[in-house]
Amino acid sequence: MYIDAHQHFWQYDPQRDGWIDDSMKAIRRDFMPSDLKPVLREHGIQGCIAVQASQSEDETRFLLECAREHAFIKGVTGWVDLLSDKAGERLEHFSENVFFRGVRHIVQAEPDGFMSRPDFRRGITALKDFGLTYDILVHAHQLPEAIALVRQFPAQPFVLDHIAKPAVSKGVDRIWAGHIRELAQCGNVYCKVSGMVTETEGYCWEQGDFEPFLEAVTEAFGTDRIMFGSDWPVCLVAARYGEVVRLVRNFYSEDELPGIMGQNAVKFYGISGI
């Protein structure tokens, strides 16, 4: 089974979704499971992981309801306030739902030092009690903080989203590449080859632009800790869904694709019944 390990749903709200700026006008509308299902079918993908796009428990409930109603949604990475002294209670509450597989906080929007905060790390500590994963969403310059975080929690499953959002059009930066290698030395960390097309200047790109980045990530993580994610519908500002899929399918061999396009996500998120 092929799985898209990173995509979003939303009912567009111009106030809540202010991050969708003028350069992203194409996605200023609702994107629901009924929009994604035929796209997945067209490209031979049988399931997906729905990931939070806003910081609220309402968002988590919305995604869990989507998963309840649509069998192709295999799991949800939601949001819980990990800074709260009641984080454990809220994680326990949502963990009663079989689709709740992990948590993400949009750290890329936070100030330096956020991942070192004692309250944030207390929240990360609570994840293990419920067998939950954590998606790391950071910019490239925040990778040293991410490395320090994952080293403190060697038993906690982490996954790096969007290969840390490097500036693709400028080519591989040796500092980014070094940090990727350092992060990958922690065996509890996976990496999503996702979100790359929107890290290009003017959303102009060709396949060869991404190959050095895919090479660096694959050399660091190997093919057993990499998973494909489309970042749909965000990717649509820079590429069609099929183009994003082909970036990965054209780079990896037929033997490598089953893991990267599905098996690694099943293992990481603990998806059963597939």
Rank of each mutant, 00 (worst) to 15 (best):
A109R: 12
P118G: 11
F100S: 05
G113V: 08
V107G: 03
A109F: 08
S95K: 05
Q108V: 02
Q108G: 10
M115R: 12
H93K: 11
F130N: 03
G102W: 00
F94M: 03
S95Y: 01
G113I: 07
K128G: 12
R117Y: 09
F99Q: 14
I124D: 03
V98H: 13
G102R: 02
R104Q: 03
E96A: 12
A109S: 11
V107R: 04
R101W: 05
G131W: 02
P118D: 14
G113R: 05
V107E: 08
G131L: 00
R121V: 09
A109K: 08
F100V: 06
A109C: 06
A126F: 04
Q108F: 07
T125K: 13
F100A: 02
N97M: 06
V103M: 02
F100H: 04
F130Q: 02
P111A: 01
F114R: 10
F94G: 03
G102H: 01
N97D: 15
V103R: 00
M115Q: 15
R122A: 15
P111V: 01
H105S: 13
E92D: 11
H93C: 06
I106E: 04
F99M: 15
E96R: 15
L132D: 00
F120E: 08
A126Q: 11
F99W: 13
E96K: 14
G131K: 01
L127F: 04
F99V: 11
D112Q: 15
I106V: 14
I124C: 10
R117S: 15
I106G: 04
L127I: 02
V107W: 11
D119P: 09
I124Q: 05
G131P: 06
R104I: 09
V107S: 06
F130Y: 13
H105W: 11
A126G: 01
D119Y: 05
F120K: 07
G131Q: 01
Q108C: 06
G113M: 11
M115H: 10
Q108H: 14
K128T: 13
R122C: 07
T125Y: 12
E92K: 13
E96F: 03
D112E: 15
E92F: 02
G123S: 08
L132K: 00
A126S: 11
E110C: 12
E110Y: 12
N97E: 13
V98P: 14
